[in-house]
Computed example of a mutant assay.
Amino acid sequence: MINRLKTALIQASLTWEDPLVNRKTFSKKILETSNDVDLIILPEMFTTGFTMSPKHIDHGEGLKTVEWMQAEASAKNAALVGSIVFQENNQFYNRLFFVKPNGEVSFYDKRHTFTLAGEDKIYTAGTSKLIVEYKGFRICPFVCYDLRFPVWARNTDFYDVLIYVANWPKPRINAWDALLKARAIENMSYCIGVNRIGKDSNGHEYNGHSAVYNTLGEELIFSEKEEVLYANLEKEHIKKTRGKLKFLDDRDEFTLLK
């Protein structure tokens, strides 16, 4: 059983609605990551920025990006995760893909579409969580606005790692910082947040604050600039903390109605 997972968080600026340019940018950054990395995490909508005009994106770009993720994961021998604009059955999704080095693909559709920007009127919301088993860790990935809804993230599945990929703007970054830490503490899980930096074509500014928190809510890494951040996740830390502090045993039982 593997007891350590080395993660790389790629915090970068995005080129507006240009999947080809963004794939080239991230190919270069992935190539430069450490050779012993196990999991590489990219921001939300990493090929386009947070666009509310998905019709501007060619229908085939979604599958092209998934194939690109498979090729990059295989070449690096590391899993790759991030969300993109994806069109299927005449509907648009803010879809997160988790791609393993062997080419296996899992996906999660963002459940909480961002009503403030009208995302709910353009993208179809997801209805189910995703738990990925990878190198001995149970990983639960979400997308941006999902972070504000603790019930959806409640650790009823005994996952080890929460991931949030985002385009979270600077004016509300204090909420991002506070909620990442809270999700780690209340779920006794590692919590990873990967945000973008720079400005988009709507003038929104992003200042990163990508970070990793352990099961006690202690900050392991944090950044406000364009860079790759590394963090080692330790299975023993999870086991030790949950063994000593059995807070998850006292969870409320509930059922989501919709």
Rank of each mutant, 00 (worst) to 15 (best):
Asn232Gln: 15
Ser27Thr: 09
Leu42His: 02
Asn90Pro: 07
Gly243Pro: 05
Glu119Cys: 11
Thr33Arg: 00
Ser128Leu: 11
Ala79Phe: 07
Leu180His: 01
Pro171Gly: 12
Gln91Cys: 15
Asp177Val: 13
Glu224Cys: 11
Thr7Val: 15
Asp252Lys: 14
Lys76Glu: 08
Gly126Glu: 01
Asn35Val: 15
Val228Lys: 01
Glu44Ala: 07
Tyr108Lys: 00
Ser201His: 09
Leu130Pro: 01
Pro43Val: 09
Val143Tyr: 03
Ile173Ser: 06
Val132Trp: 04
Trp168Asn: 01
Pro150Lys: 06
Thr156Val: 13
Thr51Glu: 05
Leu147Ala: 04
Asp146His: 01
Ser210Gly: 08
Phe114Pro: 00
Leu20His: 13
Leu80Glu: 04
Ala8Arg: 00
Pro43Cys: 09
Tyr108Ala: 05
Leu233Ser: 04
Leu63His: 09
Thr113Tyr: 03
Ser74Trp: 14
Cys140Trp: 00
Tyr93His: 09
Arg95Leu: 06
Ser128Thr: 08
Val81Ala: 09
Asp36Arg: 09
Lys244Tyr: 12
Gln87Cys: 15
Glu44Ser: 10
Gly49Thr: 05
Phe97His: 06
Arg138Gly: 04
Pro19Gln: 02
Val143Ser: 02
Pro54Val: 06
His56Lys: 12
Val161Gly: 00
Leu180Val: 15
Met52Trp: 08
Ser34Leu: 13
Phe86Ile: 04
Asp120Lys: 03
Pro141His: 05
Asn174Phe: 09
Val132Lys: 03
Glu133Val: 09
Tyr134Trp: 08
Met45Arg: 02
Phe98Gly: 01
Lys55Asp: 13
Phe137Pro: 02
Trp68Pro: 02
Leu248Met: 14
Glu236Lys: 15
Phe142Trp: 04
Phe142Met: 00
Ala153Tyr: 01
Phe149Thr: 03
Gly103Asn: 11
Gly49Leu: 04
Leu147Glu: 01
Thr48Val: 08
Ala166Asp: 03
Val85Gly: 00
Leu63Lys: 15
Lys24Tyr: 10
Lys55Cys: 06
Ile40Tyr: 01
Pro169Tyr: 04
Glu226Leu: 08
Met1Tyr: 13
Pro141Cys: 07
Val194Asn: 03
Asn102Glu: 14
Thr127Gln: 10
Lys258Asp: 12
Leu233His: 02
Glu104Asp: 15
Leu257Thr: 06
Asn167Lys: 14
Ile40Gln: 02
Thr255Lys: 11
Val165Tyr: 00
Ile2Met: 14
Ala75Lys: 13
Tyr123Pro: 07
Trp152Thr: 04
Ser83Pro: 07
Lys181Gln: 14
Val143Ile: 13
Lys135Gln: 12
Glu17Thr: 10
Arg4Cys: 06
Val105Gly: 12
Ala175Phe: 07
Gly49Gln: 02
Lys225Thr: 11
Asn90Gly: 10
Ile57Cys: 05
Cys140Asn: 03
Glu119Tyr: 10
Asn35Ser: 15
Thr33Cys: 14
Ile2Tyr: 09
Thr255Arg: 11
Thr215Met: 11
Trp152Leu: 05
Val99Asp: 03
His56Leu: 10
Lys64Arg: 15
Asp58Asn: 12
Asn195Ser: 08
Asn94Ala: 11
Ala175Asp: 13
Gly203His: 03
Glu186Tyr: 05
Ile139Trp: 00
Glu32Trp: 10
Ser53Ala: 15
Lys76Arg: 10
Asn202Cys: 13
Leu179Thr: 04
